[in-house]
């Protein structure tokens, strides 16, 4: 995300980032968020957070 978007999201949480911090965070999180974006585009439409509980429960029974 670009630095303005980073600053806007922090502001939406009522938090004001220190000067220069939005740009630093934009760079710092760039790789992880790009990776997450690629994951997101490949996830099945039906995938939901509760899948993990089911998966770990089934895994223990194998």
């Amino acid at each position: 995300m670009d630095k303005d978007t980073v600053a806007r999201i922090a502001a939406a949480n009522a938090y004001t980032l220190p000067t220069g911090r939005a740009e630093a965070l934009s760079v710092q999180t760039e790789k992880a968020l790009a990776t997450l974006d690629r994951i997101s585009r490949r996830l099945p439409f039906e995938a939901e957070p509760g899948d993990f509980g089911g998966a770990i429960d089934q895994a223990s029974k194998q």
């Binding site: 997450l36 997101s40 996830l43 099945p44 995938a47 957070p49 993990f52 998966a55 895994a59």
Partner: peptide, 12 residues
């Protein structure tokens, strides 16, 4: 939420 949604498929 995407980070949560990926958890089940990642474990499998």
């Amino acid at each position: 939420i995407d980070a949560q949604r990926y958890r089940g498929p990642a474990l499998r």
